[in-house]
């Protein structure tokens, strides 16, 4: 009988943490602990005595885990980054997905593989969501700037909305610039001259 693996997931965002836990549960019979607090992180992880720690690659708290890798007392279980002891293909996949894994010394790679595969898939989804969100936000911002510029042109020239938009588009095309850049220039100039 193989002993149940203990996994710690370090994740501040509750919703994200739950999604990761769900994905991991499907990967096997695991004892999963989520730590969301940054304070006392090293101590909290050490208390759990995990076999595997999963953390967002971008988390500033990752350096704290580095300290755990140095634990050298007889009762300590050194945790090393996965990079050190596994095939680089899997590690590279993990890094591209944005997850980093720290495994306890001596854990066999085939026991980690399914868990890491599940985590990688879930983190890939997160990074897609993140870039989609960023793109939506940027589009919204651009829309706002263009609307403000349009309003400024309408007032300055006493023309209608469609005509103002047409003028902006023409200016952008003539100058080989993006519409939003022309709009931004008008907004900036108007702010300065106010």
């Amino acid at each position: 009988m193989i002993e149940q693996l203990s996994i710690v997931v370090v994740e501040k965002d509750r919703d994200r943490a739950l999604l990761i836990v769900d994905a991991l549960r499907e990967a096997g019979d695991l004892r999963i602990t989520v730590i969301g607090e940054e304070s006392g992180l090293a101590r909290k992880i050490a208390e759990q005595r995990p076999d595997l720690v999963l953390i967002d690659l971008r988390s500033p708290s990752r350096d704290v885990l580095e300290e755990l890798a140095l634990a050298s007392g007889p009762m300590d279980r050194p945790v090393a980054m996965f990079v050190d002891r596994s095939d680089t293909g899997l590690t590279r996949a993990a890094i591209e997905a944005g997850v980093s894994a720290y495994v306890v010394d001596g854990l066999r790679p085939e026991r980690i593989r399914p868990i890491l595969d599940a985590a990688i898939a879930r983190f890939h989804m997160f990074s897609r969501m993140r870039s989609e969100l960023a793109a939506t936000k940027a589009a919204l911002e651009e829309r706002k700037v263009i609307d403000r510029a349009k309003g400024l042109v309408m007032r300055a020239k006493g023309i209608g909305e469609d005509e103002a938009y047409g003028l902006l588009r023409k200016a952008a095309m003539d100058q080989g610039k993006r519409l939003v850049d022309v709009a931004q220039a008008i907004v900036t100039a108007a702010d300065l001259l106010r």
């Binding site: 971008r58 990752r62 885990l65 990079v83 590690t91 980093s100």
Partner: peptide, 15 residues
Amino acid sequence: AASWSMLRDMLDFGQ
């Protein structure tokens, strides 16, 4: 990068 570990990974994997 948000941490030295992350920066080191970026170097290790040629990013």
